[in-house]
């Protein structure tokens, strides 16, 4: 089936099988491999992208369902070489280790902050429950989102809380 959609501000067309998943269209046809696959149950969130501005797990969506949609992947988040504040937050606050969940986690965090510009720690934790990370224990992901939220509000981010010594 022929579909046309916008991906990272560029219009693309593709001929896909009806069963082709959106994540496979992105990764294997468009070679946007920053969007990862971590499970096949829509549970881990590594495949999260934005579809028409909403965070969507792209392994649970068929490519044909994205016909006509406007999609943003991790590769399209930075603009003109400037990192998005959430990307910057993850770097500044050690919000990633292996990096595999990171693109999906960042896309979810961007959607979270778009919906709530000043979330509490609890709201951040529950807002990211659809994205699994096995490396960080989430502590620094929460700090990264707090950093980004402050930046996006034009405030000074809270200082890092790693300990040097007791």
């Amino acid at each position: 089936m022929e579909i046309t959609l916008k991906v990272n501000r560029r219009e693309v067309s593709a001929d896909v099988e009806p069963r082709t998943l959106l994540v496979h269209l992105l990764r294997e046809r468009l070679r946007l491999t920053g969007t990862h696959v971590g499970c096949e149950t829509g549970y881990c969130g590594a495949c999260t992208v934005h579809v028409n501005g909403t965070a969507v797990k792209s392994c649970t969506m068929l490519a044909v369902q994205a016909d006509g949609a406007d999609i943003t992947t991790i590769e399209g988040l930075a603009s003109n070489g400037d990192l998005h504040p959430v990307q910057e937050g993850f770097w500044e606050r050690h919000g990633l280790q292996c990096g595999y969940c990171t693109p999906g986690m960042i896309m979810s965090a961007v959607a979270l902050l778009d919906a709530n510009s000043n979330p509490s720690e609890d709201e951040i934790r529950h807002g990211l429950e659809g994205n699994l990370c096995r490396c960080t224990g989430y502590h620094n992901i929460v700090r990264a989102v707090e950093y980004a939220g402050a930046k996006m509000r034009g405030e000074e981010p809270p200082p890092p809380d790693w300990e040097v010594s007791a």
């Binding site: 491999t33 991790i74 590769e75 993850f90 770097w91 990633l96 990096g99």
Partner: peptide, 25 residues
């Protein structure tokens, strides 16, 4: 001892350009 340096690995990983095995074609 005790230097805090932002990670060298991160710029690629936060922009989706790090290559895992399934990303290599």
């Amino acid at each position: 001892l005790g230097g805090i340096v932002r990670r060298r690995e991160d710029p690629a990983l936060i922009q989706g350009t790090g290559a895992y095995v399934d990303d290599i074609k």
